[in-house]
């Protein structure tokens, strides 16, 4: 198993490094966009998939990153400075928004976050002196380290890839710590988690804030990719798009966001011929998927991996082993 995983990592890494060399501009853009979405989906998967808190404000948090680099860049702040500021703002607002999240059950949380996204959108549109209002901000610069400039689309792809690697690694690291276990405990049985000492307040705030911070990073990388942003890029619709991404990928599974980001970015391209029908097909797909594959596409992925590694698919619920009654004599 370990061997397979290492092989997969190496192979995946090699592909991600090499294939952009052969892509033309638009495909390169799509590849970069997929990586940005991956970062955002990992964040939402942490909040929703692992800690069970629905967030419909992900696009709002994303906008903090985008506007931070767009506004700070012209003031001479290095790009990474912008990322840090945007991420910090997203993190702090995540904490703030996490507070009502503690008091309310998740149908309310959906509402609060949804409302937050609308407020962010309204503020972006109306605070013209800072955000340029509905015209947005154009000519957003790309990062450079001294003589090393990430100006070309290809170079910027590698820059994003670097950040994506960092995000994936850090998420892996968090989720395999005691925090990750606590998040899962909260999702699986909130009351029980509290009774074994899990501070719902601390962990929920952290899950929410870290998920939002990842959105901030994704947003910061998103702005220079297009070199232009306006409030329309951060609407509720986009938040819902991220939600669909993690749900389609598979909630609470590490592989989920990878699958979700690829599918949601590439599906519109594949369905390009269908023009406006894309959204109809997409919404139908969402409904069908909830009905027939509620665990997400990762379920299909599991099946494939099992076939490839020639292991038998273990049934979801193997019959319980016999009662160890006889074993249970006192020591």
């Amino acid at each position: 198993m370990r061997g397979w995983r290492a092989l997969g990592l190496l192979g995946g890494g090699a592909i991600l490094l090499l294939f952009p060399l052969f892509l033309e501009q638009y495909k390169l853009y799509l590849a970069s966009l997929t990586l940005v979405y991956l970062i955002l989906a990992i964040g939402l998967n942490l909040t929703l998939g692992y800690a069970g808190q629905i967030s419909l404000a992900h696009a709002g948090f994303m906008s903090f990153g985008s506007y931070a680099v767009a506004i700070l860049g012209p003031l001479g702040v290095p790009f990474e400075g912008g990322i840090i500021v945007g991420t910090a703002i997203a993190f702090l607002w995540g904490l703030v928004l996490g507070f009502p999240a503690l008091k309310v059950k998740h149908h309310y949380l959906a509402m609060v976050t949804l409302g937050f996204n609308i407020i962010v959108f309204l503020v972006l549109r109306n605070w013209e002196s800072l955000t340029g209002g509905s015209f947005g901000i154009s000519g957003i610069g790309r990062p450079h380290w001294g003589p090393l400039r990430f100006l070309s689309d290809r170079a910027y792809y590698y820059y994003i890839l670097g950040w994506a690697t960092l995000v994936v690694a850090s998420a892996y690291w968090i989720l395999h710590s005691r925090w990750g276990r606590a998040f899962r405990a909260i999702r699986e049985n909130e009351m029980r988690a509290e009774v074994v000492g899990v501070s719902l307040r601390n962990y929920k705030l952290m899950a929410f804030a870290i998920g939002s911070a990842y959105a901030g990073i994704g947003g910061a990388l998103f702005a220079p990719l297009l070199t232009y942003i306006d409030p329309g890029a951060f609407t509720l619709d986009r938040s819902i798009q991220f939600l669909m991404m993690v749900v389609m990928g598979g909630l609470g599974r590490f592989e989920g966001p990878f699958i979700g980001a690829v599918v949601v970015t590439l599906l519109p391209e594949l369905l390009r011929a269908s023009e406006g029908f894309y959204l109809i097909i997409f919404s139908l797909a969402v409904i069908l998927m909830m009905l027939f594959m509620p665990k997400g596409l990762v379920a299909a992925w599991d099946w494939m991996v099992c076939r490839l590694t020639r292991r038998t698919v273990s049934p979801a619920h193997p019959p319980p082993p016999p009662e160890p009654a006889a074993v249970l004599e006192p020591e």
Binding site: R181, E188, A193, V196, G197
Partner: peptide, 20 residues
């Protein structure tokens, strides 16, 4: 009974002590 159903027996026990 209240357990963490998708965790193993060992993980359930570790979970019960990790916050201590």
């Amino acid at each position: 009974i209240q357990l963490f159903p998708e965790m193993t027996v060992l993980e359930n026990l570790l979970m019960a002590a990790q916050e201590r």
